[in-house]
Simulated assay, not measured.
Amino acid sequence: MLVHIFINGEKRKVHCQPDAMLLEVLRDAGCKSVKCGCDTTNCGLCTVWLDGKPVLSCSVPAARVNERHVTTLEGIQDEAEAFGKYLVGEGAEQCGFCSPGLIMNVVAMKKELDHPTDDEIRHYLEGNLCRCTGYMGQMRAIRQYVDEEVEA
């Protein structure tokens, strides 16, 4: 089947199987930041933005994104780098496998929520699993990123 998708602002024609998930299509299109970590929609590693909202690409049929806009980490490099510096500063990047999905959600949260509380941050990010950090370093980095961006 042929699907027309805007990937990081570029319109692409994608040939895929009728049962293909967006995750597969994006990886085939070269978006290697989009990862599969669980196959059960529980880890958050495959998070992308669909029309500006975070979604788990492993649970979105590619056929449903026809003529829609998908943004991956490759499409928000400046924002990702800005937040990534906070992760590194807190030693929260560890292996980095979960970082793309986390970054996609943190940047989306910053755009959506004004002055989020720690509870709001935890709720927004509850689907992002990390097996390395214990989350405290990530939480400190998120808090610093959100607070500094709000003040700027």
Rank of each mutant, 00 (worst) to 15 (best):
Q17M: 07
E112R: 13
G89Y: 11
E74R: 12
V34S: 03
D118I: 09
C36L: 12
M21H: 10
S33L: 02
L50V: 05
E112M: 13
G30S: 11
Q144P: 04
A92Q: 04
R131G: 15
L56V: 03
C31K: 08
K110D: 01
L102F: 15
V65R: 08
G75M: 08
E79S: 05
L50G: 04
P18V: 09
R143C: 02
L26K: 12
V150Q: 14
K110V: 15
A82P: 11
V34W: 12
G75R: 09
Q77E: 15
E10C: 09
K110A: 14
S59M: 13
E120F: 03
A20Y: 07
A152Q: 14
C98L: 10
V60P: 04
E148I: 06
T133D: 10
N42W: 00
L45Y: 04
H4Q: 07
T71C: 10
H4A: 04
E10N: 03
V107N: 15
F6Q: 00
G96I: 05
T71H: 00
R140N: 11
L125Y: 08
F83M: 04
C132E: 08
R140M: 06
T47D: 06
I142G: 12
T133G: 10
V146T: 08
T133E: 14
L23I: 06
G89T: 10
A20F: 03
H69S: 11
H123I: 14
D39Q: 03
L56D: 10
D119E: 13
V34D: 01
G44E: 14
H4C: 01
S33C: 05
D19P: 02
P54H: 07
G44K: 01
A80W: 09
H123E: 10
N66F: 00
S59H: 09
R12F: 03
D147H: 00
I121W: 13
G30A: 02
L45M: 15
A20M: 05
A20T: 13
E10V: 12
D147G: 03
L129Y: 01
H4Y: 11
D28N: 06
D114C: 06
E10I: 08
F6W: 05
R140S: 13
M104N: 04
K53P: 13
D119S: 12
C58T: 02
E112N: 05
I121A: 13
H115G: 05
Y135R: 02
I7A: 02
E24G: 06
D28S: 06
N128M: 13
M1F: 14
E81D: 10
A29H: 01
R64Y: 08
P100H: 02
R140D: 14
R131L: 13
M136W: 00
V55L: 15
R27H: 12
Q77W: 03
C98Y: 04
